[in-house]
Design a protein around this nucleic acid. Sequence first.
DNA 1: CGTCTATGTTGACACTCATCGATACAAGCG
DNA 2: CGCTTGTATCGATGAGTGTCAACATAGACG
Lengths: 124, 124
Amino acid sequence: MSNMKPLPLPLLDPAPGEAGAAPCCPPLTERPFTVEEARTAARMFKALGDPVRLRLFSAVASHAGGEACVCDISDVGVSQPTVSHHLKKLREAGLLTSERRGTWVYYRVEPSVLATMGRLLAAT
Amino acid sequence: MSNMKPLPLPLLDPAPGEAGAAPCCPPLTERPFTVEEARTAARMFKALGDPVRLRLFSAVASHAGGEACVCDISDVGVSQPTVSHHLKKLREAGLLTSERRGTWVYYRVEPSVLATMGRLLAAT
DNA sequence: CGTCTATGTTGACACTCATCGATACAAGCG
DNA sequence: CGCTTGTATCGATGAGTGTCAACATAGACG
């Protein structure tokens, strides 16, 4: 409602409430996680813990050019508001970033994410 | 030594309702996940999507000998029933297995899990 | 047998979440 | 300026989840 910002992209900035993928945490097998580590890592796992979000993330991650328009990946069997909702969750978890270009919005995988999560599951 | 376990352990077998970690799914970046792949993989991510469960899993995974007694890992800031509840979730997701030996119950990481999940996040 | 310890289960509660329709916002085009 | 399309937000709702206290179960030991 009182969205009086003169700034161009009020809905797409990664600004407030979005987590950002910190280079968090040693491998899960290295030592017991601390409360803080667990909270950070669980946020990422949780974001991928929904089938629809996992399909959306996979669709973006595997898309040619490293990015995908929402229109390219919306066919996951749920309504458009629900797709938008899940993409927002993935953004808030720091897994995806978005950018509006003209009419369309493009999503890409936050670069550090795959390495960070891969490291969590690395065997010692 | 009547500890020969002639009876099946109704609470500890991975029998019904427990998922089992299938060698599921290509890397997330390879191609968009199918509905079935997403359902299977999301079940595992979801199990790790809670801070308490992540600490329990990490405690088991990092414990000397590859297994941990519940009594070794119960100090995660929640009540004993809650610990038991979360361990059950991790079992049902196929991430942990349990075995009673005498008074104590020991948990270990399902061997294939780390490799399977690591593969999901492998970069191409 | 009885009792103690370790762990799992039940039932209840508050809370979160996935989903949708309706609506708002953004950009291009006539 | 309206019209159209793409995407985000709002509000409601039903399903799911984390948590605990109380209770149940299993083994060890006397």
